[in-house]
Design a protein around this nucleic acid. Structure first.
Lengths: 336, 336
DNA sequence: TGCTTTTACGAAAACGTTATAGGAAAAAAG
DNA sequence: CTTTTTTCCTATAACGTTTTCGTAAAAGCA
């Protein structure tokens, strides 16, 4: 805030402010020699255009926001890494907001951003399949480009970046079955999210394909509360007729599954075969090493940011209904 | 950018713009009844002040920046979580920039931020003990408050939030020795950072205190390249006179140590005892469960953000030389 | 009553840009 | 040698706030 302004530059050069502005913008209206003079003095004084003035006048800036449920999570951390790699290279600034799975917080952030602080939004939703009015409303009032990733509201018409959850869940479940699991369970969230539903669909179709009769108890609903999840899982795995396989569709559920099996002295993979949907870097080092279905988190972030910036910079909103699908990666280790 | 402006509010109320501005700012110059009228209409239209106009006029905004080397790392992710929890509650917006341990990138970000986009800066440095000119320069030209955390430049006079690295490293090393390690090694970075040096000091003093003669080979220097680290460690642990203990002063070095020991069929803790400086949530699930010295990452972020906002809002820079020290936590598990 | 003080508002300038419109000089065209 | 076009620059008005200063009316005071 302490640097030199365009006005001072103009004064020292004996030029008008508009000339300086155009010279810095490399306008064709300005002669090469004048441009050179301006650029040189600007460099000498390390002139930096005031972003507030510029944004105010242009009614548009180079700032975007990322709203995610959590950052202490390899998936989202990687996604942010991917987003930042793009925004950095395109000279955008990236705001970050964490909702901690709290709908009210999500709404509050969205309302706050209606001030016009940003020129685009990347978001991974924190709730189920309902209550998306705030996204629609945000869009109606701001008309700003939005890209959803991973946890997307399937019922809304917005560009999205997702993984092939159905297909990869099908494959993962099939692998559990082929490895000998007769009753593989799906651990999923209580929130009815599109992402989870796709995974569930893949899971159920794989069961059917392999002639396993699906019953409701095969689906275990966990929450955001790690301690509660432990209780839930411990109870289920203490039963006589417990599952002999686990497809943990969320990172932390895989970890809790390991804890429960360890405490109940259930052997992995002998008693229970496990595949976890996770991007944990330590998966290979767990005891036993965890078979994972990992998401292309970094690339999802990259694609989302690329798409968003394209939408911001092109007037064309042709991309508005784009859905980019990236493949999950199945890595079989000792837990199966 | 599509909402209603103050001008339109004023027009509809039959008031001047300045009156509306003051009313919204709860100025004493405005009567209670007028304030009420203004507030009501503002709420009706969901009026949001344009942050660019406001920041431009006030020469100050409610945006801060966080610059860190990495986000795919539990320590920094937790720190960002802590920072965000504060900025969110104080209604600040948080920019995030990742340097990926790249000095040039760090310099570029700092220079970019000299435009005045932010009102304060939280940073964890990416380099050694030299080349801090860019921080000093950033401060000279912007006069903006800066708070360093974890990786701090010890030679510069700025407020800092750090962990008790010396004391806790001393304790961790002492535990390795008490557990039977005769030649515990320290794995540290090649970059000569203050943080690492403190850890090293604690390590060496613990050796001396317990009558172990220190030699240079006991310090293993690793890099930012995981594959290279593997090679380095594998070579050292393949030697006859290999270390029988590891104090891994950085998260990823602990993981690579595990990988190397596993591949070399060295038993942890029988052949090699390990303590890792890490915030990994899966530490307890590793094989064997990893003893950790974990940093108060979330709280460090919280303290840093709290301090920064205090500096931004108070005119007093009394806090300018504050150094906040938080304790690391030692958790002994099966790897020792 | 006349005087001062307080209350409650408005006019206008400022913050640092960018965009629009216009114009003088130089170059090109006839 | 005029006319047209092109080149290069300036003046000015925005963008939406906040702040300073001025002032009429109301209130206080003798």
């Amino acid at each position: 805030m302490n640097g030199i302004s365009m006005i001072q530059l103009a004064k020292e050069l004996g030029l008008s402010v508009s000339t300086v502005s155009k010279a810095l913008g490399d306008s064709h209206e300005i002669s090469a020699s004048t441009k050179k003079r301006v650029l040189e003095l600007a460099k000498k004084y390390k002139y930096k255009p005031n972003p507030f003035a510029s944004n105010l006048r242009k009614k548009k800036g180079k700032q975007i926001a990322v709203i995610i449920p959590d950052i202490v999570n390899n998936f989202f951390a990687l996604a942010v890494d991917g987003i930042e790699s793009v925004t950095m290279s395109k000279h955008y600034d990236t705001f970050i907001y964490l909702t901690h799975e709290n709908l009210e917080r999500e709404k509050a952030v969205l309302e706050h951003l209606e001030s016009g602080l940003i020129s685009g939004l990347i978001i991974s939703v924190c709730t189920g399949r309902e209550g998306y009015a705030h996204f629609q409303e945000f869009y109606e009032t701001t008309r700003l480009p939005i890209v959803f990733f991973d946890r997307v509201p399937d019922l809304l018409q917005f560009p999205k970046v997702i993984a092939n959850n159905y297909e990869s869940s099908f494959d993962a479940t099939a692998r559990l079955i082929k490895a000998g699991s007769k009753r593989p369970a799906l651990i999923t969230t209580t929130e009815p999210m599109f992402t989870s539903m796709e995974r569930r669909r893949g899971y159920q179709d794989a069961l059917e394909k392999h002639g396993i009769v699906f019953t409701d108890e095969m689906i275990i609903h966990c929450t955001d509360d790690m301690a509660l999840n432990y209780t839930i899982l411990r109870k289920i795995f203490s039963q006589k007729k417990r599952p002999d396989g686990i497809f943990a569709s969320i990172e932390k559920y895989a970890i809790t599954s390991y804890e429960v099996c360890k405490d109940l002295k259930l052997s992995i993979p002998k008693d229970v075969k496990v595949i976890g949907m996770t991007n944990l870097r330590t998966a290979a080092l767990l005891n036993p090493s965890l078979s994972t279905l990992s998401q292309p988190a970094f690339d999802m972030g990259k694609e989302a940011a690329g798409l968003l910036i394209k939408m911001i910079e092109k007037k064309s909103y042709a991309a508005a209904n784009d859905i980019i699908v990236l493949p999950n990666e199945l890595t079989i280790r000792d837990s199966i």
